[in-house]
Computed example of a mutant assay.
Amino acid sequence: MNATNFEKIYRDEDVNLELLTDKVVAVIGYGSQGRAQSMNMRESGIKVIVGAGDRHRHSSWDKAEADGFEVYSIEEAVQKADVVHILLQDPAQPSVYYESIHAHLRPGQTLSFAHGFAVLYGTIKPPKDVDVVLFVPNGPGPVTRQKYKDGSGIWGCVAVDQNISGQAQETALAIAKAVGSTRVGVVVMTFQNETEGDNYEEQVLYGGTIHLMRTMYNIMVKNGYPRSFAYAKAIRSIRSIIDDIDEVGIEPYLTSRASRTCEFAVRHSGPRVINEEEMEKIFEETENGIFARNWLQEFSLGMPTLHRMRRTCAESDMEQTGEIWREKFGK
């Protein structure tokens, strides 16, 4: 592929941070991402306030204050802000939005998300007189924070759903720059692509990898391998492989860093592990909204299936082995 055919990658020199320097960004939700992005933006010179629930019921209020932020009720933070940056968990967003945000928005504000789920699937319907954007760093909050502190950043993407001001994309990119993502690169995509791509990734890559690990561990233990050995092979060894592949690429890893036995194993037997037909089916279900419908239904019922699966997996032989393994061999 010719590099000129690749999508535009926005870096620091492409983005004007001054779009935010005289504005107030209200971060709603001071969890893992909320804390990381708030601190990064503040250190980039942006005025950040935090909106939290009742301080007597929400520990996030005290945490944000301890980190030196001005903290307000969500309603008051929205009223004070130019940019309302929602970093709550997806299922919690609609109720908080309609209870504390929607009625307090004013024309010309920017409503920003870190995932397009609520907007794409209509659980949140913003007013027509505000910009609606998203910015998401491709990693968890602590990594986003540590990368920023190290002088680097984490790859991210932005998207625009409503562009009332004519500068919605520029604002989203400025948020990305303040968090540190344009240090390494940010791409522009649609709300639909970001949401469904993320949902697909979590089902196939995260879900597939974790269940692959569990299945490999169980088969090895069932066939007489020591639990510590099975755990190391099924869980720990993937860390160095992923780091190498990320550094040089798959083919250079296979041909110059892996053993020839490993290369043959990957090329000969690897495809047998993958069920491409099921991966295609999951992709279609994601694009058709079936995954979103199932998740919203599960959440509305109090997540009974998810709670059962959590308990079953937490009590599994592999998880108990993992606790002992990390204690004896380190993290």
Rank of each mutant, 00 (worst) to 15 (best):
H115M: 09
G141V: 09
N218L: 01
F117D: 00
N288D: 12
T255W: 08
E201K: 14
I238W: 08
R326K: 15
G302A: 07
F6A: 12
F117S: 00
E251G: 01
D161Q: 15
P137N: 10
G208V: 11
M303N: 13
K331S: 07
H268G: 07
Q79Y: 13
G302S: 14
S300R: 11
E298C: 10
I238A: 10
M318E: 01
Q89K: 10
T305V: 12
P126Y: 06
E319D: 12
E18G: 09
G249M: 07
V132E: 11
V15G: 04
E65C: 09
P142D: 06
G122N: 08
V186T: 14
E76Y: 12
Y97A: 08
A265R: 03
N163L: 04
D90Y: 05
K47Y: 00
E202S: 15
R272Q: 09
E276W: 01
V187S: 01
E284I: 13
T21R: 15
D62W: 08
V188I: 15
M41G: 04
F283M: 15
R11D: 04
I49C: 14
E319M: 06
D12S: 14
Q162C: 00
Q93Y: 09
P142S: 01
K128C: 08
V24N: 01
A36D: 02
V27R: 02
N40A: 04
I242E: 10
R214N: 14
